[in-house]
Design a protein around this nucleic acid. Structure first.
Lengths: 249, 249
DNA sequence: GCGTTCCCTGTACGGCGTCCAAACGCTGTA
DNA sequence: TACAGCGTTTGGACGCCGTACAGGGAACGC
C-alpha cells in the first residue's frame, strides 16, 4: 500500500506519517461524504503541497485501500474468541461491533464495499467468523459459506443504511432516519403500493439496530438449521447441541 | 428525475430522448466501470455537445438516479405473482432474476447501492417481496422486516460480487472469479490464517450462483422458522404449513 | 410574418488526479 | 570537513471533470 518502509532514509526527514494522511482523509470523508477526500484536500489539511502525498502513497487508490484496511483493522474482534460464550452471542456482538465501527464513518462505507476486501484485516475478520462457526459445529464447507453469508449481511446492511441517509456528514440519529424512511414509504401509499403502505408503520424497523439484529438472528437461525440434525443429510446426528432458544429480544 | 414532460413544446424538436442518454450512460458504465459515465462522454456518444445533456436532466446525479430506476424497472417480477407456485421458489426465482439483471451491468451496481433506492421501481420490488411473504403466512411486521432482509442479502451479495472483481468491464465468467478468489485465500494461508487456508478449497463457493442460492436458502430457512409454529411466541399454531423440504440443489 | 419559446452550442471557470523539473535538506563517504 | 547523491517537497502545468452563461437558430402560437 504505502511507499514507506522502515529504516533511515537518505534524504530530508519526512514531514508526515502515513497515518496522518489517513486521518486527514477520514476526517474529510466524515465531514463531506465519499467524494470529499481529494488529494488536494488531504494535502491542505495536513499542510503540504498536493504532490507531497505521492511520496507516501503511489496514487489516490492506494490511499483509499490503506484507509479501508485501517478501518477494518480497527474492528476489535479478539474479544470474541472466548469459546466459553455461546457462539450466537459472539457472532451478534461481533456484528454489532462491526456496524458501530463502520457507521461511525459513513463516508467511508462506500469505499469499503467498493473494493475487493482482500487485505489482511478483512481476511482476519473472515478468519474469526470462520472459527466461530466451526466452534458452532459446522463442517468447514458450511462454515466458509456461512461466514460469507454473514459478511454479506453485515456489510450489505451497513451499505444500504448509509445509502438511505444519502448525503454527507455523520449519520443522523436513528429516530430521525426512521422518520425519513416512514415518510418515504408513506408517500408510496399514494402511488399504488398497498402493502408498502400497510407496512409503513412497521417500516420503523428498517434502518435500525433492532432491524439489524432481527435480520442477523434470522440468518443465524438459517445457519443453525444447517448445523443441527436436519442438516445436510436427513440423518440424525445424536451428539450435537440442538437448536437453542432463539430471538429473545 | 427528467426535465422532459409529454406534450408539444414551443421550441425546436429535441434531438434525443431520455432513454438514448441513459443507454449511452449504461454502455459507458459497462465498458469502463463506475467512473466512465461522464457527462462529456455521454454527450459525445450520442453526438451532442456536453451541455445539451442538461436540457434532459438537471445534473449528473439525476441521470444516475434515472438510470438506476430504469435498471430496477427492468427486473421483471410480475411473473412471480403466481400464488399457485410455492412461495420459496418464487422468492428464489426473483432473487436470481435480480442478480442476473444487475450483474449484467457491473459498472452500475455501485450506483444502485450508492443511493437511497426509494424510486417507484424499487418500491414495487419491495411490494412484490412483501406480497410473497404475506402469502407465506408472515404477519405484516415480520413480512416487512423479512423483505428488507432479503433485499439486503440480494443487493449485498451482488455488491460484494462486483467489488471482488473490482475493475472495469463485464464480470469475468464464474469459473475465473472462483479461481481469483481461491488464489487470494490461498495467499492468506502463508500469512497466519489457518482456517482461511483450510477452507480455501471451499471458497470456490464464494462468488458463485451456488453460494448465492445457498445463502438465500439459509435466509429463507431463518424466515420460515418465524412463519412456522416455533415463531414469535412458543405457542403452537396448528393450521400453518410446517417447515418444508429444504435445500435440495 | 412575427414574436416567443426552447434546444443546442461555444466558451469559460474552478476543481480534480497526476506528471515534470527544479529547489532543498539530509546522510554516507571521502 | 567537504562533498556527492538521494529523497522530499514544491510550483507549475496538462487533461480531465461537472456545470454556468450567453448567443444563435429552429419550431410553434398568433
Amino acid at each position: 500500500m504505502s511507499v514507506t518502509s522502515e529504516g533511515r532514509r537518505r534524504g530530508p526527514r519526512r514531514a508526515l506519517t502515513d497515518d496522518e494522511i489517513l486521518d486527514a482523509a477520514l476526517d474529510l470523508l466524515d465531514e463531506g461524504g465519499p467524494d470529499a477526500a481529494s488529494v488536494r484536500g488531504i494535502a491542505a489539511r495536513v499542510g503540504v503541497a498536493p504532490n507531497a502525498v505521492y511520496t507516501y502513497f503511489p496514487d489516490k487508490a492506494a490511499v483509499i485501500r490503506a484507509l479501508v484496511e485501517r478501518l477494518l483493522g480497527g474492528v476489535d474482534h479478539d474479544m470474541f474468541a472466548d469459546r466459553s460464550q455461546p457462539w450466537r452471542e459472539r457472532v451478534e456482538a461481533l456484528a454489532l461491533e462491526l456496524r458501530a465501527h463502520l457507521s461511525a464513518h459513513p463516508g467511508a462505507v462506500p469505499l469499503v464495499i467498493g473494493g475487493p476486501m482482500d487485505g489482511p484485516h478483512a481476511l482476519a475478520l473472515n478468519e474469526r467468523l470462520l472459527q466461530l462457526l466451526v466452534d458452532a459445529g459446522l463442517d468447514p464447507t458450511d462454515a466458509a459459506r456461512a461466514s460469507y453469508l454473514l459478511i454479506v449481511y453485515a456489510f450489505g446492511s451497513i451499505a444500504l443504511e448509509v445509502a438511505a441517509a444519502h448525503r454527507p456528514g455523520p449519520l443522523p440519529p436513528e429516530s430521525e432516519r426512521v422518520a425519513i424512511r416512514q415518510a418515504a414509504f408513506s408517500a408510496a401509499s399514494t402511488e399504488g403500493f398497498p402493502r408498502g403502505a400497510e407496512a409503513a408503520a412497521t417500516m420503523a424497523g428498517y434502518v435500525s439496530t433492532e432491524q439489524y439484529l432481527w435480520g442477523l438472528r434470522r440468518v443465524l437461525d438459517g445457519i443453525t438449521a444447517r448445523a443441527t440434525p436436519d442438516g445436510p443429510t436427513p440423518a440424525e446426528l445424536p451428539g450435537r447441541s440442538g437448536p437453542r432458544g432463539i430471538h429473545s429480544a
